Simulated scan of single mutants.
Amino acid sequence: MTNTPASTQRTDGTDLFELLAALWTQKLLIISVALVGVLAATAYAFLSKPEYEARVYLQPPTLNGIADFNYGRTFGAELTPFTIKDVYEVFIRNLQSESLRRAFFNQVYLPSLSPSERNGSQDLLYSDFSKLLTIGLPTKEQPDRYSVIARAEDPAHATAWVKDFAARAGAAAEKEMISNITREAEVRVRNLGQQIATLQEAENRVRQDSITRLREALAVAVAIGLENPPIISGNLSAEVSAGMDGQLTYMRGSKALKAEIQNLETRKSDDPFIGSLRALQIKQSFYKDLQVSPSTVSVYRQDGPIEQPDLPIKPKKGLIILLGLFLGCVLGFMIALVRHFFIARKSRA
């Protein structure tokens, strides 16, 4: 086992005590440098511009809020009703869209800057804006709650920004939903119109076919001189009357046939004779008049009020002053050590 010489231990102990003594003799220098650090940190903390943060929390809408989106949309109808998730996904997509951020940047953020600040690089300005306005993502505890966070030197600006940005996202989502519903209704109107036109054309052809058959029967009735249907008594009368169609149509008599032909030729509309026409027209009228007002629907729900912040998040004055004190002390010790070693070397030389 190797033993350390006593002289070496005494030398190391002496050097350490000499160093501490040298630092103690320069305590005024260390305190002065630390004080300068505290003063500089204090000046920075109190002179730098404060930054405030406003936040709004957003949640899915209620069933009452999306009720008008589902007007006329049932599980038994042609159009599937929207769920809360469907509507909220449209809102979140608009909330996170780049087009909304760009529009807000150009219409709200840039006008809030001074002319000299606006003349800078647009890319740098947009990068700064992206740091000031952010979207808070949901957590495991609340997987559906998003947030809009804005930071500004003016607390009123920060509050107005989160309100405006959330409202713009909501308006864009409502417009998209209403546009989708209107487009679907227009397609349904066009499809129903096509069905109605097809039925009307088919009924018109049926009427023309009936006129043709009646004309042929009239020619037979005139040829045999039968003006009125024959009078037949007993059960045979009922059988013959029921069979006066097809090849026996002429037995109705020329007078009845002429009247029926004239009635069919002068008919103004075939609509009353189309069985399913009225139901289709009612559907078409419903989809044609279908409108959703933005004032009666909502695509998100605000969770709690938006309060104007009264305490800045930056600068943290206490932390900055403590940091200035720490750095001042470190710098003071370093200067004192350098000065001590410089004086020691000079004395030995």
Rank of each mutant, 00 (worst) to 15 (best):
N70W: 00
S298I: 04
G243D: 13
A219R: 15
A171V: 06
T266I: 05
N70K: 05
I149A: 06
D144V: 06
L192D: 01
P294R: 09
I196P: 03
K346L: 12
D15V: 14
G136V: 00
K163P: 00
Q59F: 07
E216L: 14
K258M: 09
E260N: 09
R151Y: 07
E53M: 04
G253P: 03
A223L: 12
R10T: 10
S7C: 05
L218I: 03
L29G: 13
A156P: 00
S237D: 13
S112R: 06
M244P: 02
Y52E: 00
P115C: 04
Q200T: 12
Q195N: 10
A172Y: 14
G275N: 15
T14S: 14
I232N: 07
P138D: 04
E141F: 04
S237E: 13
A223M: 10
K163I: 06
N204Y: 00
I66E: 08
T2P: 12
F333D: 02
A156E: 13
R183C: 01
L311P: 00
P111N: 03
G253N: 05
Q59Y: 08
H340L: 09
F273W: 08
E227M: 09
Y126C: 06
A150H: 01
R301S: 11
N204A: 12
Q262R: 10
P138V: 03
W24P: 05
E184Y: 11
C329V: 11
E265A: 11
E176H: 03
G76W: 01
K268S: 13
N64M: 09
N191G: 10
R190C: 01
Q194K: 09
A197S: 13
D289Y: 06
T4Q: 15
T42G: 15
V297H: 07
A54M: 01
A173M: 08
T80P: 00
D270V: 15
E239H: 07
V87Y: 08
E216F: 11
P309I: 02
Y109F: 14
I211R: 04
T134P: 02
A279D: 12
R301C: 00
S7R: 14
A40R: 02
A349Y: 10
G13A: 14
A259I: 02
I321F: 06
D154H: 04
V108Q: 11
R102C: 02
L110Q: 07
Q208H: 10
L133K: 04
M334C: 11
R348L: 12
L100Q: 04
S237K: 11
I313F: 08
S241W: 03
Q281D: 10
N191F: 09
G13E: 14
S347M: 14
S254E: 03
F273C: 03
A77P: 01
I196S: 07
A156C: 02
N228E: 15
L199R: 06
Q96R: 14
E216G: 11
F75A: 15
E98L: 10
R55Q: 11
K317Y: 08
F69H: 06
